[in-house]
Amino acid sequence: MEAAPAMSLLALPFPTIDPVLIEIGPFALRWYALAYIVGIFLGWWYAKRLVSNQRLWGPAGSPMKPADIDDFVVWCTLGIILGGRIGYVLFYDLPRFQENPLEIFALWQGGMSFHGGFLGTTLAMILFARLRKIPVWSLIDVIAPSVTFGLFLGRIANFVNGELFGRFSDAPWAFVFPFGGTEPRHPSQLYEAGLEGIGLFVLCRILTHRYLKLRTPGFVAGAFTAGYGVSRTFVEFFREPDIQIGYLAGGLTMGMLLSVPMIIAGIILMVWASRRRPVAPTAARRGGESPVE
């Protein structure tokens, strides 16, 4: 059991922010829901920019059209929500949901897993790409950096809700969270927002715009996957484990356990993509819009 440090005189009080942004009668819009909505729209917008920028794809052009991204938004949303919820149920709190199955549908009470959402969105991309005859890895390469907007906003919403806070800390930037006792804790949600949101976006931006890795299908997807795994594993050293799970064997957490395979898979995917000969898309699948930076 982790021992609490002496109360730091420099600990920051948690800002008073109502988790509910707008409430009209029975309708309530929460910051967490808004983060998902805005994150999906920003990702949609950015994915269309990547598809429309022919310079990033080379002479062969983009293997998909902006209209394909428009149609994929619904698939992506379902993959995020269903995968995220099912992942949370299976990975983090299965006994509770076995006792109360109807709570699985109570999404407004919170409980989403990134790793589950990752798997759900990946399945949606594979099915959609095969249906539209789009190269699967090219679609994943476009969606991967677009996900970073939702990751950033989602972690900020976690901070606003005062949930998923960090371990005890005497750092001057530690916060006393309303549901974390009287001791200051790491704002691990902000660490994750910086690494998983901003950090991964910058990494993917450099790979797509400077090194033109969209021309190497699968490489950006691999970098994102490995990058998330590394970022999440690092933050887990500062994040308080879920109370219903705690620490696993060797001091590991469930977040670490689920992230290690992502690191391995991402590295393998980057190596495989680098050695693979790119397949030129057919003219029928190329985007027809002018380049956009």
Score class of each variant (00 low, 15 high):
residue 116 G to W: 04
residue 116 G to A: 04
residue 116 G to Q: 04
residue 118 F to E: 01
residue 118 F to K: 01
residue 118 F to Q: 01
residue 118 F to I: 02
residue 121 T to S: 10
residue 122 T to K: 00
residue 122 T to H: 00
residue 122 T to A: 14
residue 123 L to M: 06
residue 123 L to H: 00
residue 124 A to G: 02
residue 125 M to L: 10
residue 125 M to K: 01
residue 125 M to Y: 01
residue 126 I to S: 01
residue 126 I to T: 04
residue 126 I to K: 00
residue 126 I to F: 08
residue 127 L to F: 12
residue 127 L to H: 01
residue 127 L to C: 02
residue 128 F to Q: 03
residue 129 A to M: 00
residue 129 A to N: 00
residue 130 R to E: 13
residue 130 R to M: 14
residue 131 L to R: 14
residue 131 L to F: 13
residue 132 R to Y: 06
residue 132 R to K: 15
residue 132 R to H: 05
residue 133 K to S: 15
residue 133 K to N: 15
residue 133 K to R: 15
residue 134 I to N: 09
residue 134 I to E: 06
residue 136 V to F: 13
residue 137 W to L: 15
residue 137 W to H: 09
residue 137 W to P: 01
residue 138 S to M: 03
residue 138 S to R: 04
residue 139 L to I: 06
residue 139 L to Y: 04
residue 140 I to F: 08
residue 140 I to K: 00
residue 140 I to T: 10
residue 141 D to N: 08
residue 141 D to Q: 07
residue 142 V to N: 07
residue 143 I to E: 15
residue 143 I to L: 15
residue 145 P to N: 11
residue 145 P to H: 10
residue 146 S to H: 11
residue 146 S to A: 15
residue 146 S to D: 08
residue 146 S to F: 12
residue 148 T to V: 13
residue 148 T to K: 05
residue 148 T to E: 03
residue 149 F to R: 10
residue 150 G to Q: 08
residue 153 L to F: 15
residue 153 L to E: 08
residue 153 L to N: 11
residue 153 L to C: 12
residue 153 L to Q: 09
residue 154 G to F: 10
residue 154 G to Q: 05
residue 154 G to W: 06
residue 155 R to S: 12
residue 156 I to T: 13
residue 156 I to E: 05
residue 157 A to R: 05
residue 158 N to C: 14
residue 158 N to T: 15
residue 159 F to A: 14
residue 160 V to F: 08
residue 160 V to C: 09
residue 161 N to K: 11
residue 161 N to E: 08
residue 161 N to T: 11
residue 162 G to Y: 05
residue 162 G to S: 07
residue 162 G to N: 04
residue 162 G to Q: 02
residue 163 E to C: 13
residue 164 L to T: 04
residue 164 L to K: 02
residue 164 L to S: 06
residue 164 L to W: 02
residue 165 F to H: 14
residue 165 F to L: 07
residue 166 G to P: 08
residue 166 G to D: 05
residue 167 R to H: 11
residue 167 R to L: 15
residue 167 R to W: 09
residue 170 D to L: 03
residue 172 P to G: 13
residue 172 P to D: 13
residue 172 P to F: 15
residue 173 W to K: 03
